[in-house]
């Protein structure tokens, strides 16, 4: 049963992935404009040089099918297109070469992804812990001043623009914590303790910003989830058993209230590799979010395709994880 379930889930994941791969290719090519013209809108680049670049990146080829060759009955010639080159490279595990910096997209992404995961993961983790704890307390103290305060602060931070909060924190911590980047250049050898302390210092402001902004979402969901659970009959049973408030909250309410959170958390973590564009921008964090943002402006198709593929794969995996986790946490969900 369980095996069947997994097999089916994996099958659908693969189908989704194939759709994503095809969609991924065309998505960026329907953007208006010409990447070469935009990329190299540089007075020092002649038209001949632009043409050369176009050939180098295969942008002189038709996007989908070479219609002329097809009508001439030349099937291999007809297939000589940007799309077939994309698929061909992908099958070999190659994501292509960035239009802008000529680096291998796979390398660019693997350099960036752990930085983004470090930032977003620590930020979201902090947000989840804060959200769950405050949500739990607010729900338990429903209607009291504590609850009102939690709701007020929650809604306030929910409405607070990330950019604004980031800048405020940046100005407040100026001189105490670094204003941007992930490391102090030239300070320490990568991998040493000093290096990691330096990274930690750079991480505090951006992850805190991210945490404060996303915590309120978790808090509000957690609160309503706990409020709902606390009205359930089994909570009254637990109370009648003579359990203390803390025991009731942690051994009866929490697990049930966490069920809707599991899906949200798993999916959020799936988007972790997508980065947090605003936070990465304010704090000059060299992550995937910034990369995607910059690449859109430059129409750097190979980087965008690579990044979105990475994002799609991790979201698909996160979905799968959420399904499996849910069946572990909630005995009522039959794995069928």
């Amino acid at each position: 049963m369980q095996f069947d379930y997994l097999l089916r889930k994996v099958f659908f994941a693969v189908i989704t992935l194939i759709v994503v791969i095809v969609f991924n290719f065309f998505l960026f090519r329907i953007l208006p404009g010409d990447p070469v013209k935009l990329l190299f809108r540089n007075p020092r680049l002649t038209r001949e040089a632009q043409e050369l670049i176009r050939v180098q990146f295969g942008l002189d080829k038709p996007v989908w099918l070479n219609i002329e060759r097809l009508s001439a009955g030349d099937i291999p010639g007809a297939l000589d297109s940007q799309f077939t080159a994309y698929i061909h490279n992908l099958l070999q595990g190659k994501l292509g070469i960035s239009f802008t910096n000529r680096q291998d997209v796979g390398e660019v992404l693997s350099e960036r992804v752990w930085r983004t995961v470090l930032l977003v993961f620590s930020g979201e983790l902090l947000a989840i812990v804060m959200g769950v704890v405050v949500g739990l307390v607010a729900a338990w103290k429903r209607g009291t001043a504590i609850d009102s305060a939690a709701l007020f602060i929650g809604l306030l931070t929910w409405a607070l623009p990330t950019f604004f909060l980031g800048i405020i924190l940046l100005i407040l911590a100026r001189g105490i914590l670094p204003t941007g980047g992930m490391v102090t250049p030239g300070l320490a050898e990568e991998g040493t303790l000093e290096y990691w302390i330096d990274v930690g210092r750079h991480l505090i402001l951006p992850s805190l910003t991210l945490a404060v902004v996303s915590a309120s979402g978790y808090m509000l969901i957690m609160r309503s989830s706990v409020v709902e659970v606390l009205s359930e009959a089994y909570i009254l049973t637990a109370k009648a058993k003579g359990l203390s408030n803390a025991r009731i909250l942690f051994s009866h309410a929490l697990k049930n209230a966490m069920l809707p959170m599991i899906t949200i958390i798993a999916l959020t973590l799936g988007y972790v590799v997508g980065g947090a564009i605003q936070v990465e921008t304010v704090f000059s964090w060299p992550g995937i979010g910034r990369l995607i943002y910059d690449s859109v402006a430059k129409q750097d198709y190979p980087v965008l395709q690579g990044a979105f593929l990475l994002l799609a794969v991790s979201v698909i995996l996160a979905n799968l994880t959420a399904d499996i986790l849910y069946s572990v946490f909630d005995p009522r969900v039959k794995v069928t």
């Binding site: 100005i171 670094p178 980047g181 304010v282």
Partner: peptide, 22 residues
């Protein structure tokens, strides 16, 4: 002896970095 270029995402961040002496 050494020149370090450090990239910031926004010009506002440059203002803060210069003010902070980074």
């Amino acid at each position: 002896d050494q020149i370090i270029y450090q990239q910031y995402s926004t010009e506002d961040a440059l203002v803060q970095a210069l003010a902070a002496g980074e």
